[in-house]
């Protein structure tokens, strides 16, 4: 088997461009996912029944159906609602963000439930509202505690973002496909793509480990 090194070197800049887009949509989806996940996670354990229901349905739907189908649904359903052609960017980030939000919601829910209920009682007994106590006391503690799970979720999301190639979005995987279509060098390009993904996921996991270490140090004080 010949491994065409020149081709890899030639394609590398194009693949890196794709990797940049992968990072961009992952970062934006993570941001969307954290915001949605935080509110849905809190809604799931809040006292308002209708919010609990909405959050439960949301989490069940997005965890219970394939991301690929969600991407198609968002991509083809958005034009029906807005009357305009879907912007692949918006569709990709919406689908990935909504999907990630469901997992993040469960992470936050368990994190919040792991905080001693005496914390909520202490906050409430000082005259703070439920929302204030959540915001200043419970959520900051829960957030620290769930950083490792959030890290895992973001690594998963980075890899799953390859699925948005199906709507023609030119991120890393799609770039690889396009280069292979021209050069037929499947093995070279997919190897190269895999290594680029690996570098990105390892970077995230190291960064999360660093954050964990930082916060553990804070707690020791």
């Amino acid at each position: 088997m010949d491994f065409n090194v020149d081709l890899v070197i030639q394609s590398f800049p194009l693949l890196l461009l794709g990797a940049g887009i992968t990072i961009k949509i992952t970062a934006l989806s993570v941001a969307v996912g954290i915001v949605i996940g935080l509110f849905m996670g809190i809604a799931r354990i809040g006292r308002i029944k209708i919010f609990r229901w909405i959050a439960a349905i949301y989490v069940d739907f997005f965890r219970g159906t394939p991301l690929l189908i969600q991407i198609f649904l968002v991509y083809f359903a958005l034009p029906l609602m807005t009357g305009q052609r879907s912007d692949p960017y918006v569709a990709a980030i919406s689908a990935c963000g909504l999907n990630s939000g469901a997992y993040v919601a469960e992470i936050f829910r368990s994190g919040i439930q792991s905080i001693d209920k005496g914390q909520m009682e202490a906050g409430r007994s000082l005259g703070m509202t439920w929302v204030q106590t959540m915001r200043y006391i419970v959520v900051p503690q829960a957030f620290k505690r769930v950083i490792p799970q959030l890290g895992n979720e973001f690594i998963a999301l980075l890899k799953d973002s390859s699925l948005v190639s199906v709507i023609g979005f030119e991120e890393l995987t799609r770039r690889g496909q396009l280069i292979i279509a021209k050069t037929y060098a499947s093995v070279e390009i997919w190897t190269c793509v895999a290594i680029i993904y690996l570098i990105m996921t390892l970077t995230i996991s190291r960064f999360v480990a660093f954050l964990e270490w930082r916060f553990a140090k804070d707690d020791r004080h």
Partner: peptide, 20 residues
């Protein structure tokens, strides 16, 4: 309830200080 709780301080067995 929040108004009334401003007038009533509470001290718990397990302190329940905010650790962060």
């Amino acid at each position: 309830i929040n108004k009334v709780r401003e007038e009533v301080g509470m001290v718990f067995q397990r302190f329940n200080l905010f650790p962060h």
